[in-house]
Amino acid sequence: MATISNTNPVMVTETSSLTVQKVDSEASMRWLNAGIKDFKASLGASFTYGMIYVALGLVLAWLSWANPMFITSLAAGFLIIGPIVAVGFYCMSRTLEQDGKPHFLQGLDGLRFNGVSLVNFAMVLGVLMGVWAVISAVTVALFFDNVTVTDSALGTLIGHEQFAPFLFAWILGGALVAVVAFSISVISVPLITDKKVDFVTAMITSVKTVRMNPGVMLSWAFILATLVFLGFIFGFVGLAITLPIAGHASWHAYRELIKAN
């Protein structure tokens, strides 16, 4: 059974162990640069893979165009489920690491290798997505219960006297969910796709990694959020570039933060 000791080793199976590493302050930029390099090296497969999520985002945005708050919640949701979305990019980066040629269907490799843990962890992130949806809906209801929308929903909300306290509460709720999601997932999915670990061990390892490298992981979270934001402000289309870069870079973060003994 997996255990974690005070000397940093994380026992994954009876025959292997991992060690959580402490990294320097420049690590996040190394990971980003490595992600850009991998994106260029697997341009066709990575871009095509990214376009699937662009199409999905555009469909969801079109369906919710009349509700701008749903669109902002959707953007936050991408941050929460991002690690699962990026499974294909992790597998591509691992292939490049082994001097192989990445291909479009490599997302299936992670599912075949450790599918049970991957699905279980996806369910955990799904619960967090549900929690965020409830928090968002409750916050809107608390502050705008008696608001009558006349022209535009966004214009009505921004012009309302409760908008500033609402925005503060909404951002605070989203930040709390994001911190939890990031802490349990930043290392979990790359680890699950690379080693035969259960999803609970992967989450504990991820939290331990964040705790050991708070400054670096804060800057890494900011970089990932920025990449997703840049993808969204260009009408979702930018995600075809920024999402693959984030995914490839996250693989390199995992490889530097977790070492096999």
Rank of each mutant, 00 (worst) to 15 (best):
M69A: 06
T139F: 07
I52N: 11
F182H: 13
V54G: 06
T13S: 13
V87W: 01
V207A: 14
V119Y: 06
M203K: 03
W65Y: 07
Q162R: 14
V85G: 00
L176A: 13
Y53L: 12
G231E: 00
A178T: 10
R112K: 15
K40Q: 08
V147Y: 07
L128R: 12
R255E: 08
D194I: 03
V216K: 06
M1G: 09
F163G: 04
G247D: 00
S117E: 05
M129G: 13
C91F: 05
I135R: 03
R94D: 12
S25Q: 15
G50V: 04
S219M: 08
I184L: 11
L63A: 10
G215W: 03
S93V: 06
R112G: 11
G35M: 02
V87Y: 03
G57I: 02
F39V: 01
I4W: 12
V116W: 05
S16V: 12
K101E: 07
F236A: 09
P9Q: 14
N67S: 10
V207D: 04
S42F: 03
V119I: 15
T15Q: 07
K208Y: 12
D198L: 14
M129Q: 13
S136C: 05
I258V: 15
L172T: 14
A122D: 03
A41Q: 07
K37G: 01
G77L: 14
R112M: 08
I241A: 02
T156Y: 05
D109W: 06
A45N: 09
V12I: 13
G44Q: 14
G238F: 00
C91M: 15
A249R: 01
V119P: 09
L96V: 04
A66Q: 15
V54C: 10
L111S: 01
A141V: 07
L105P: 04
S185R: 02
S185T: 05
T15D: 04
S64L: 05
I223F: 13
T15K: 11
G100C: 10
K40H: 07
S183D: 06
N67G: 01
I258Y: 00
T150N: 13
P244H: 01
M212W: 12
